[in-house]
Amino acid sequence: MNTEKKLIIKRLVIFCALAFAPMIIATPILCKIVGGPLFSEENAVSPVTAFYAMLGMCTPMLANFLTRIITKEGLDDPYLSLSFRNGKGKYYLLSVLVPLAYSLVSAVLMVLIFLRGYAADEIFEPDSFVIAPFLIISQLTSNLTVLIAYFGEEYGWRGYLGPKLSQLMSEPAAIVTGGIIWGLWHAPLTCVGHNFGFDYPLFPFLGILLMCLSCVIMNAFLTLITKRTGSVIPASLAHMTHNSAGASIMLAAVMKEDAYKLIDGADPVLLSLVLYIPLFVTAVISMILLMNNKKKQAEKTV
């Protein structure tokens, strides 16, 4: 292995250690403070959890900065540009529209699969479809004001980890590896009920596996928009949209309480797999576009 690859691996190890350590140390301490798992039903809306989520999301960004300082890397190509020229503007738009689209498809699938046999007036609140888009947009605009949290994650994963992995391996392998590392970073949170709760077989290992799967799938689209714009800001917007306007939030805006409880109470593993179907299609399209682009660039240099 040549010296350059050894240096990249050393930087990656330091980055991962700095990103993982705060989550592994802080999660059990905070669980002790709140007197139970952070994402249990009573603690999920606790201000401690919200505060921890905000700070925790900034650890990859801090790991990026600290790794660059420790390894004297400097700030070449920091993926911080903000330009809409040369066709980049459409990727900023897609960074919001694509997550909204696949969340909407997921929501429709959830209703069709988990509430088949129910009539529309049993499922949906009357006239809710008029106000629901405004509620979703309001959710997005409110979360936009704390974009720093999503930027904190993206600056670490897409701004540092992804490019470094691309230098060591092929693009698909880099996306899969990056997604698995991202998913494993969530493991301390999955162990305290994040995303999947506690009521599923093989807790928490199956949850960690599903988290890695979703991170790999999301990584494809996020890497595509990062590479096409040379910036992590579209990826931050996409991540924000994915978290703020997900399928469950869309359904909560239009469904009756009893109908929503039926979906909320469904098997979390099955629910997640249904959610991942449109996301998987997005990932496949993103991967094809990435590989096509790489092929075109290779042809140009020849």
Binding site: V45, S46, P47, V48, A50, F51, M54, T145, V146, L147, I148
Partner: peptide, 22 residues
Amino acid sequence: FAVNTACFVISSICDIISGEIG
């Protein structure tokens, strides 16, 4: 953005201190 983030952090800590949720 910086001021808004600071307000979010301050309001979260205030909620923790006072025991209020949201």
